[in-house]
Design a protein around this nucleic acid. Structure first.
Lengths: 185, 185
DNA sequence: GGCGGCGTATACCGATCGTTCTATCTACCT
DNA sequence: AGGTAGATAGAACGATCGGTATACGCCGCC
């Protein structure tokens, strides 16, 4: 039998799942119960709920997931970018889809001093770099502005899918992504 | 001197302001204090906090605001649609901008039974009709799908502007809105 | 002129929030 | 073997949550 992960990992897993399905405002008790971890361990490892929430965002493999999707799509930058929107269509069609974890955290945590905000920014920054690199390889004349457009599309899909269930916004966005890719020097 | 609005109006005004700046999770006490209203009046008029929050969303003049912006842009459907994104650029550039009220409510209130969800859907539905009508007047071959694209752009701008302050996503989206408008039969 | 409806003010309810504390137990290190 | 660090269990903290109850004042209406 495999050894059970330590309390730190169990806390992160439980928090990742519960803060997504129930929102970041989920109670500490619920996280502790699902992680089957002593109360003290949370404050030992993360200093408090805020630290745990921030670490959940920081340690998320969301960026890797984007990378993986693009790598599976082959070498052509155009196909790689469009594959992202195909994946978004699949994700937003799942019944368990509850929106973008980062956008939700940003909108819910109104305290500007919350450590989660820095992680949200870091993630979006990383995603922007990822897309800009792809556009550069594609020969886009303004990769930075193009990446801005792709990010607006991605955030738009993730936000819109929550409010209009049947709309398939990723398909709409995919067509616009093609317009982004059509820009040539 | 003008007569002071009744408790119902004062509650709505206070709730509208505080649920935006502090999020829907703002306490009832804070709303009561700002509205300068007795506790009982809230439950008398709205049945509870959930009812008040839902009524804030329902009574919002956000859709009228979109209409007004387009009307001020003249008669050409193309100019009217693009004016929306100019307005979005202005809105998201304000320091008081805290994101889209509806998206935030949808993401924060994870209880699917909350009455606010119906109001969010109604608003997005109305906005979709508004944009589809404009595209139809413009001669767009698939006004419905085009409106989906515009809504993704709008939601994307409002969501992205919160997480990347200096990005001016409305400008990026405006260029893509031109691509939507370029579709011809 | 009394009476009901509305608004105010405040006390209070149980529940839950995030956090701290005490105490006990276990595993590993030398 | 002894000791230390980390984990567990659980009580308890003060604060705040949404909601209810009680008591009082004001005003119009029959």
């Amino acid at each position: 039998m495999t050894t059970r992960p330590g309390p730190r990992e169990r806390l992160l897993d439980a928090a990742r799942e519960l803060t997504y399905s129930q929102g970041v405002q989920v109670g500490v008790d619920a996280i502790l119960k699902q992680a089957d971890v002593a109360r003290r361990s949370l404050y030992q490892h993360f200093g408090g709920k805020d630290g745990l929430v921030a670490e959940v965002l920081r340690s998320d493999d969301n960026l890797d997931r984007y990378r993986r999707v693009m790598d599976e799509a082959g070498d052509d930058p155009r196909e790689r970018v469009l594959a992202v929107f195909d994946e978004l269509d699949a994700i937003t069609s799942q019944s368990s889809f509850r929106g973008c974890r980062y956008t939700a955290a940003e909108l819910t945590l109104t305290d500007p001093g919350h450590p989660a905000h820095a992680e949200v920014r870091a993630f979006k920054e990383g995603l922007h770099r990822l897309m800009a690199a792809e556009l550069t390889r594609h020969g886009h004349p303004a990769a930075d502005a193009g990446a801005d457009q792709l990010l607006v599309l991605i955030d738009g899909v993730l936000a819109h899918a929550v409010t209009r269930p049947g709309a398939r916004p990723a398909l709409a966005a995919r067509a616009l992504a093609e317009a982004v890719l059509a820009a040539r020097a």
